[in-house]
Nucleic acid binder design. Structure first.
Lengths: 264, 264
DNA sequence: TTTTGTGAACCGGTTCACAGCA
DNA sequence: TGCTGTGAACCGGTTCACAAAA
């Protein structure tokens, strides 16, 4: 972990396509910029300043500029960034030009919901295979896709060209399933099971744990609550709006939402 | 943002309960330690070294020790940490001693799954109210809980003592709903809608965006793919196991998973 | 004049290595 | 002797402020 340190690497490698070595923090924000750009394109903007784009992405402008400069400067001073150009630039860097096939293993409560989620396709992904181990689920089709037995993972991953999988099994099944996926050639896993996954080098794992997210919020609630009792200057336990003024005054009448989190 | 800098604050404030000022990175890891501790307790361990606990949480030992030392040293040198003591200590810090009531707004695909998710209660949370705007869903009960109209948010949040909400509406509905929640007294929101939320100061928002997670993985896939073609020394597109040896040799027969990500 | 791109300062967090305690 | 607690070095990332370009 502490060999040489002269990896100042930037820009291209051998291949013609720009092979940059982006900071992980930047990579994590690029998708947010992409979403904001799509929203801007939607409303007809064809150029945008770092200030505006940053606001749309919920980031500050300096950070955004530094991030974008890492990809090699696609803005025009005095003007801003070309929405379309920047969109395609970020899409390319993220490898979203091809629609990536994703496998989903564990068709339970959550897996079922993800299988039916329409928001993936417009953002570069296509759920290409569903797996479970429960006999009772095997015949079922969800969104026109058959639920197959986990023993078919090896075959299907290869034939469908899948390299990314989402894991929504119970925790005790997660490690063996992850092993199967890796064995089959999957090199990226999005793990929803509340457990740590051990994978060989070269395989990326990202974890989504809803209870952990709530627990982090709980900590801040706890802190706010004790701070409130410790400083009893204001009796009302309400908010303390300072920076971003709450836009609509609540109780908006006609919202009309039918399904869950779609695409922006 | 840059006033005085002598906020070396640690340990207690006025109230008797230890009011520490933990680094955000530490807070984000405490839930993982907690999960690991539960797993250790399950298998009968009543004491654990920083090395072992770190491994169980997927963190390195030095980081874990520094994190735990922030809470005020609950280990015994030469021995390790008492599992039960540490568990209760972390639970207290995270404010998980009371079972927190959580509201869920947007009973679509994903919302439905979360409403039925059994994994929250053993980790400190209880879904106490469901809301939607769609007339067609209003009568429905999920897990014994009635789906109410969003207009009832104000009432129910107060009577149920709710301070945390999960938002699983489509993006265009997210901001107005967030405003209603904040207005009603909610001070923490877990947002699953792919959009930025604007809230007054004092309200915490955490975001979970599945497509973003996939896009981050996509970036690394892209990088791995180009690296592979750029360095064609090995023809096989398989893994390169080095550090953690994959435990089970894949194709495990009897896993038996019926529902999705439960608790550890 | 406007807005980008970026060097430099700054800061939070991680890693290291070892002193201190059981 | 073994393992924790922590100062110090280190590092990635953020913020600042301004020079350069359109």
């Amino acid at each position: 972990m502490s060999e040489d340190k002269r990896q100042t690497s930037r820009r291209k490698t051998s291949a013609g396509s720009a092979e940059l070595d982006l900071p992980e923090a930047t990579v994590a924000r690029l998708p947010e910029y992409l979403r904001a750009l799509h929203a801007l394109a939607e409303i007809g903007r064809d150029t945008v300043s770092s200030e505006d784009l940053a606001a749309a992405a919920g980031i500050n402008a300096a950070k955004l500029r530094k991030d974008l400069s890492q990809l090699g400067s696609y803005g025009t001073r005095g003007v801003g960034y070309d929405v379309e150009l920047l969109t395609s630039q970020i899409s390319t860097v993220l490898g979203l030009t091809e629609n990536r096939a994703v496998a989903l293993v564990g068709i339970g409560n959550l897996g079922h919901a993800l299988a039916g989620y329409a928001g993936f396709s417009p953002r570069g992904f296509r759920i290409a295979a569903l797996f479970d181990i429960d006999e009772g689920r095997l015949g079922e089709t969800i969104g026109g896709l058959l639920v197959r037995h986990v023993s078919e993972i090896a075959d299907v991953v290869v034939t469908e060209g899948i390299s990314i999988a989402m894991l929504t099994t119970p925790p005790h099944a997660a490690q063996p399933v992850a092993d199967m996926l890796v064995e089959a050639g999957v090199t990226s896993i999005l793990n929803f099971a509340p457990c740590v996954l051990s994978v060989p080098e070269g395989v990326d794992v990202r974890k989504v744990d809803l209870a952990i997210e709530l627990q982090i919020l709980s900590f801040h609630e706890h802190r706010k609550a004790t701070a409130r009792t410790a400083t009893p200057e204001s009796a009302s336990p309400k908010t303390a709006s300072v920076n971003p003024p709450p836009p609509s005054p609540a109780t908006a009448p006609g919202i009309a939402f039918s399904d869950q989190a779609e695409n922006a």
